[in-house]
Design a binder for these strands. Structure first.
Lengths: 240, 240
DNA sequence: CAGTGGTCTAGACCACCAG
DNA sequence: TGGTGGTCTAGACCACTGA
């Protein structure tokens, strides 16, 4: 089980062993695993080495310790998925909904002052402007306007949008998406949005403005999305 | 600097010392701190104890190690903070605003079904219910209702709330805050909230529901906050 | 009381990096 | 080659838990 002469560190082998025992049910949730001293004796290794393995598993959320009682298997899901940059489509699939889109407009326009400033461009630089209705389970959920610098995101087509914009940027254009900043605020639906979202004027909407950047810091995307408050809420996990 | 006979663990004292040196600029960004052996010798402690301190600082993002070269000060702490669990007070200070609170109610009540379910308690288990007006730069920004299990977060007082609840939980109760999940949605102001927030009925508000858990997975806090949409937006950074 | 995790020691050998 | 972090040992005493 543990090979003291392997180039793989002993604590790492022990980690894998314990994780395996958790996953195959030998150590059920909320029960103790063998004590540090027992593991040390069983594998003829030092207790400090056992502690190093257990420390890592505690940090990864697999185990938790209680003074004087023992080390327990954590019942909590280990997924620990922090918020990652995802597209609407990826987001909806994760929520178990079927996403669809309805393209309203798709053309190149000169950037106005606000868009130019956000995308770090000169005013009037050509940008794609794409307006879409986002649909989940056959009912409208958001109206979304995307701006992309036309000189950076070249060769965009409606077909690419329907597949995956992010895949196109990363795979075909070989650009590296690094991170995105979102501003989330509440507002009341304006007259021009009521028809597309099938809501009354003044109904609450969630407005999410996202700016995405490449790994060299270049902004490549600005998206403003207006979500129906009754059909969408934003969920977010944070660590202390 | 280091008191070997203090009840505070040596590694923890060393952590604070190194963090202090980073913050006051003695160890600038991207430069090495003294080697593990040098720190051990200087403070007449074991190298393993030094490693424990440095391990914790590496996990917290203050330092990073490079094999054969040394341990370096990490330059970016701000980004990591954007995804971290913070209190209203911490949040406002970061935004450059002066936070204040007005306590509306503070008592222990039996948990109703919803609160009990969220906090993983039996119905009617005693919980603190704390209602506060959150004020930034002398004008109301949110109304916040907090629920805490009375049997877990013991000895709460108004004075503690005005200092820092999270400090109290972490330092005085020795509990480890692990993570929090937020649900963010838009709504229209209800009649009962208009007076406290000084807005019209039906005005847009941002509703943030936060559930926080300890490192063993126990939920210890449920907070529902209703923010004035015209004075608050939620900002959030994500990585791909 | 015996057993547990928490802290700590004073060494050791290794791979890696820089000069 | 000398210094660094990475790994590991074989002990030790402590506070805490539960029977």
């Amino acid at each position: 089980m543990i090979d003291k002469y392997s180039p793989i560190p002993i604590y790492h082998q022990l980690e894998e062993y314990i994780r395996g025992q958790i996953e195959n049910g030998t150590y059920p949730f909320d029960t103790t695993i063998p004590s540090e001293r027992e593991l040390a004796e069983r594998f003829e290794i030092s207790r400090m080495t056992v502690r190093q393995a257990i420390n890592n598993l505690v940090n990864d959320g697999y185990l938790y310790r209680e003074k004087g009682r023992g080390t327990f298997v954590n019942r909590r899901k280990v997924e620990q998925k922090l918020q990652a940059v995802t597209s609407f489509t990826e987001d909806m699939i994760e929520r178990g909904l079927t996403p669809k889109n309805k393209l309203l407009t798709f053309h190149i326009i000169p950037a106005n002052g606000k868009v130019a400033s956000i995308l770090n461009l000169q005013e009037h630089t050509p940008v794609y402007e794409i307006k879409r209705i986002r649909i989940a389970d056959d009912s409208p959920i958001a109206i979304e306007t995307t701006y992309l610098p036309a000189n950076l995101i070249k060769g965009l087509s409606e077909e690419i949008l329907n597949r995956s914009l992010y895949n196109y940027i990363e795979n075909d254009l070989s650009l590296k998406i690094s991170e995105a900043t979102q501003e989330i605020e509440a507002a009341s639906a304006k007259q021009q949005d009521t028809a597309h979202l099938q809501i009354e004027k003044g109904a609450p909407v969630l407005v999410i403005s996202q700016t995405s950047i490449l790994d060299d810091g270049t902004p490549f995307e600005y998206v403003k999305s207006i979500y129906r408050a009754d059909r969408y809420k934003f969920v977010h996990k944070m660590k202390r």
